[in-house]
Nucleic acid binder design. Structure first.
Lengths: 149, 149
DNA sequence: TATTGTTATACTCTATAACTATA
DNA sequence: TATAGTTATAGAGTATAACAATA
């Protein structure tokens, strides 16, 4: 172990602050991108999740880390705009699957493409640097294995 | 330039995703830490800002990137809990300075100390790695100069 | 009985617009 | 007249509790 005092050393403090800056930028850009599609951040996040795969309301709440009752309203608003629809689950009639409409899929794709917040700043790093950044982030996030690209 | 297609190459995509994970963790931890003090995220952020220096309501709104009218409510609630107070500005009687009380300062400090979200994961990196992480983040964030530690 | 989704309620944060007191 | 802060209002997200339909 190199740095012993991970709590107070000035190097660590600066890294923490820089990460805070990245986090703030990330959010600003995300909200801005969502706003361009007249969506709130939460609505954009839901649409992004559903564009990967339709989900039961309950699971959606788990992914969002919020109460199921909140999901009802978010889906209501997306449904009112024709971006999402509720489908019955053939296996369990209690369950409702939230799924994006065609327009919802298009919107999600457009949203994803416009998210340059994290991509653009990476342009200033060389490939080797991105590799080492990836490896450090993997360890910070706690990824076990993974291939070497 | 090493990587030419910064938009689609799989390395960059993974880094973007990892950053997204870090951002999500950062927020969860922040909200959790604020919650332990019975504060919302916005209230904790305000208290953190004011613990550095008292600010006019207007400037506070600028830092939070929100409308001044919102700040009124946030400060109202912090003031009702005795964590913040409004002081007159001797130079301009229109201005009100928001400043933390003694208890507010203690709460802000305790809050800051409990924010291990970004610090703890850094423990798995060596000092050299933290240095190179710092340098990359600096460039991503767009810091010009800065010392070399 | 337990679970899924919803409704009802209350609180916080948000933006917009109108207001007040200063400047 | 312009600015600082506030109030009033409305929309969105959040948690809690109670409810209907289904398992």
């Amino acid at each position: 172990m190199a740095g012993r005092n991970t709590r107070t050393d000035s190097l660590t403090l600066e890294v923490v602050e820089l990460i805070g800056t990245v986090v703030a930028r990330y959010h600003e850009e995300y909200e801005r991108a969502a706003g361009r599609h007249a969506l709130t951040g939460a609505q954009a996040r839901v649409l992004g999740l559903l564009s990967l795969e339709p989900l039961p309301m309950r699971q959606l709440a788990q992914r969002l880390k919020c109460e199921p009752s909140n999901v009802t309203g978010i889906i209501d608003r997306l449904e009112a705009r024709g971006l999402v629809e509720r489908r019955p689950d053939p296996a369990d009639r209690r369950v409702k699957l939230a799924a994006p409409t065609e327009e919802g899929v298009r919107t999600a794709r457009s949203l994803r493409d416009s998210l340059d917040f994290a991509r653009e700043p990476l342009a200033s790093l060389s490939r080797d640097e991105r590799v080492s950044l990836r490896d450090m982030l993997r360890r910070m996030v706690g990824v076990g294995g993974g291939d070497g690209d």
